[in-house]
């Protein structure tokens, strides 16, 4: 309540439950889910991150923050941080820019608008690992159709050996899947910009490019900001399937993001303590990132 709407405020304050237990019962399912799926695993990770297991997994010993020291001093880990930054920024920017472009184009479609939109939304229904496989098949150096085309055009395409190409491939695959989602939000945002504002700007002598950047873009900023948060989180966490299917983190760790490294160190290399320390760091990074986004980026966003 912001205090400006006295009726809404008082109405809500007066909604007192006669039963003392009922409110807690109503909250219980949500709280239970959060505890079981977030607080409990998170606290386990926190606990685990301070343990070190012996090579046979028979006993573990408390080592304090030594796991963290080891992880942060590991050049592989620092490389993974760099990879994650490149991957996340590229994926978010590419997914959002393309989605915005497609959404503005969809606005201009006169006939078959619904069909066009539906087709653009479909990729979102594809599971990350499947999306990864699709792109892998298309660009696999030995059997991919597009890889064949690229090579016959004289381009040395081999993402299995070239780290930059591998990165490009996972970025495109990850962005491709997220475009649909972003598209949907951008279409809705564009529709909510009053037509008369654009007409007024047209009369005010702004070209259509200028209208877009000075009127439309600032007005859809809340959506853009929301998508920025969502896409960053997506690139950080939900792209594991794509990376696993397309590159498996390689070649030579060129596409090993933080999440992928957590998995690799913990479940493949069975360094549970180090993996847990990494996931705690990852959690801190995402919390910090989201906080920063809300603190600084949101200030520049105009909510109508």
């Amino acid at each position: 309540m912001d205090g400006r709407t006295p009726f809404a405020g008082t109405a809500l304050q007066k909604a007192v439950f006669p039963n003392k237990l009922l409110p807690y019962l109503l909250l219980a399912p949500q709280v239970a889910i959060t505890i079981v799926f977030f607080y409990w695993p998170a606290s386990q990770a926190l606990y685990q991150s301070m343990l070190k297991e012996d090579p046979f997994g028979l006993k573990s010993q408390f080592v304090g923050l030594r796991n963290f020291a080891q992880v942060l001093g590991d050049p592989d880990y620092l490389n993974s941080v760099k990879v994650t930054i490149v991957f996340s920024v590229s994926t978010a920017v590419l997914a959002m820019a393309l989605a915005l472009f497609l959404a503005t184009a969809a606005e201009k479609v006169v006939r078959g608008k619904g069909f066009y939109r539906t087709m653009l939304i479909w990729p979102y229904a594809v599971a990350p690992a499947v999306a990864g496989l699709l792109w892998l098949f298309m660009f696999n150096p030995s059997m991919g159709t597009f890889a064949y085309l690229l090579r016959s055009a004289g381009y040395r395409w081999n993402p299995l050996l070239d780290g930059d190409q591998a990165m490009l491939l996972v970025v495109v695959a990850a962005a491709w899947k997220q475009i649909s989602y972003n598209f949907l939000f951008f279409v809705a945002a564009l529709q909510s910009v009053p037509r008369s504002l654009i007409e007024a700007a047209a009369i005010d002598g702004a070209s259509s490019t200028k209208r877009f950047w000075t009127i439309v873009f600032p007005l859809i900023a809340p959506t853009t900001f929301f998508l920025l948060v969502v896409n960053t989180v997506y690139a950080f966490f939900d792209t594991f399937g794509i990376i696993d299917a397309v590159t498996g983190g390689g070649p030579a760790q060129a596409t090993q993001t933080l999440v992928y490294k957590v998995y690799n160190d913990g479940f493949v290399n069975l360094d549970l303590g180090g993996s847990a320390a990494q996931s705690v760091i990852l959690m801190a990074i995402v919390i910090a990132l989201t906080a920063v986004q809300f603190r600084y980026v949101e200030k520049r966003v105009h909510y109508a």
């Binding site: 008369s196 007409e199 007024a200 009127i215 007005l219 105009h302 109508a304």
Partner: peptide
């Protein structure tokens, strides 16, 4: 009619 002022 709705003034169409640029809100930002």
């Amino acid at each position: 009619q709705n003034y169409a002022l640029y809100p930002h």
